[in-house]
Design a binder for these strands. Structure first.
Lengths: 113, 113
DNA sequence: TGCTATACCTATCGCAAAGAGGTATATACC
DNA sequence: GGTATATACCTCTTTGCGATAGGTATAGCA
């Protein structure tokens, strides 16, 4: 059975974060790992084994565009959002909000724990 | 590699919902499926193939307790939270809040659109 | 008679995320 | 000079949740 859309509402948080950060400014993989760790106060720590494959996938699917640059003897690959990537971000953010609202409403049902 | 705790912060939403609903009152599996669909306005629709195995797992792990009752010729298995289950709910809710806050803060970084 | 709703169940699949590696250069420390 | 740490890239494999797709059985209605 082939899946057309519906990106599995319950996960996809790493992708959402990456897309959102790249909307602000271009970044490279190693930088994203630290940015996510720092921005979330270590609530979310994603390994390079999560980030790099995701960047490659997103680029293959046309959501990202990359350029290679050497800085201080180090080769970095900077990624930016394409228009398709912005659209994908919008959809991911919407899906996240929907789930968040749903969960929050259930959690708040007439009780405080 | 054996996992001790850390329930994979990014998912676990179905478990969180089930625990939360069972804290309110005892329910049976089929009822939970509909309760989740209704309470979330169909934002989250979990199949029976998700709910039943989860109930069995949670019971096996001591988070739930069940009793069997026949109503109108139909055999239902009602589940309630044990003290361990309440603790598990608290932890799941805390984890969810942490992730939610982290994601929200990243999403809100100086941009609208 | 047959369809729908209720109520339980398990077995398999897909895929995102986690983990564990591996390469290479720059820099700081002994 | 040697060694450890930080930077920066990479991929392979495992895991486990969630999704799908079945299956059983009874009650009730048309």
């Amino acid at each position: 059975m082939k899946r057309e859309s519906s990106p599995n509402y319950l996960n996809g948080v790493p992708e959402l974060l990456v897309l959102r950060l790249l909307k602000e400014r271009e970044m490279y993989g190693y930088e994203l790992v630290q940015a996510i760790r720092d921005a979330t106060g270590e609530a979310i720590v994603l390994g390079e084994g999560v980030i790099y494959p995701m960047l490659h996938l997103l680029e293959r699917e046309g959501a990202l565009q990359s350029r290679r640059q050497t800085v201080a003897g180090r080769s970095r690959i900077y990624y930016t959002l394409t228009p398709a990537g912005e659209k994908r971000l919008t959809q991911a953010a919407t899906a996240w909000t929907r789930i968040h609202d749903a969960v929050t409403s259930v959690l708040g049902v007439s009780a405080r724990g």
